[in-house]
Design a protein around this nucleic acid. Sequence first.
DNA 1: AAGAGGCCCTGATAGC
DNA 2: TGCTATCAGGGCCTCT
Length: 287
Amino acid sequence: MPELPEVEIVRQSLHKKIKKKSIKKVIIRNRNLRFKIPGDFESFIKNKKIIEVSRFSKYLIIHFQNEEYFLIHLGMSGTIHILDKKKPLKFTNTSFYHSPFLPEKHNHAEFIFDNLKVIYNDPRRFGFFEIIKNHQDLNKRFKSMGPEPFSDKFKLNYVINYFKNKNKDIKSFLLDQRFVSGIGNIYASEILFASKINPFKKAKRLTKNECLNIISNSKKILEQAINKGGSSIRDFTNVSGNKGTFQKEFRVYQQEGAVCKRLTCKGIIKKKITSNRSTFFCVSCQK
DNA sequence: AAGAGGCCCTGATAGC
DNA sequence: TGCTATCAGGGCCTCT
């Protein structure tokens, strides 16, 4: 489900709700996420005070005292729901996959605070938890991953050098977290449309200007998506709540057959599937 | 060693 | 209605 913007939205509400609080009780109903939740997970998490909730790429990072950390990855279908006893029936967050009503099926984990409950729901179970026991290990954990688009490291020299002699298409690189972290299948298509670049163009054939466009549009589009509360697709229930609205701004994603939204272009948006993932692009203005 | 493709899993929708 | 096939915001693993 969530790419960087959606995870950032979850992070913001989680941080607001659970910082300076301690987890009083942990309930694991299904240990079989993408990776098995170890037997000592509950005792590790319990009674630790949360300092802050941060994020790298699509990973949520719960910071405990004493430089201990708990990572959450939401996979394709993971959502986090906050149940606040003081505000019953109000959900701070954010269901990108389901309706904002509290789901009952697939609530694999519950983290219970005083007057507050955080529920991890994930139908497909591609998400996972990870425990990190010190600060060095946290750095190590993300060492092999590329910079986020917002990072100063994501600049022209880096991109050009990375693409030298690379025979893979540019769309695959945007999805490759070793190159850049946080972009997923929706935003990859949107970034390449904004940059007027064909997704199947080989990376080594990109010009300097095209690289610059990719860099600036990556920042721009992810920023816009965060400002719109992320993208909520496949969620057509008309309920109030903090649903994202960036799906209304999609210019190519899920727009197959539509006329290109670029005013000067009359091309048709095509969808192409490679290795089980769809790519959307305008046949006319993305060269 | 880079690159292509398969696979993990459940649910919603489309098509017959 | 009830079946089957296809597709879905990710990332890891294995082949060549």
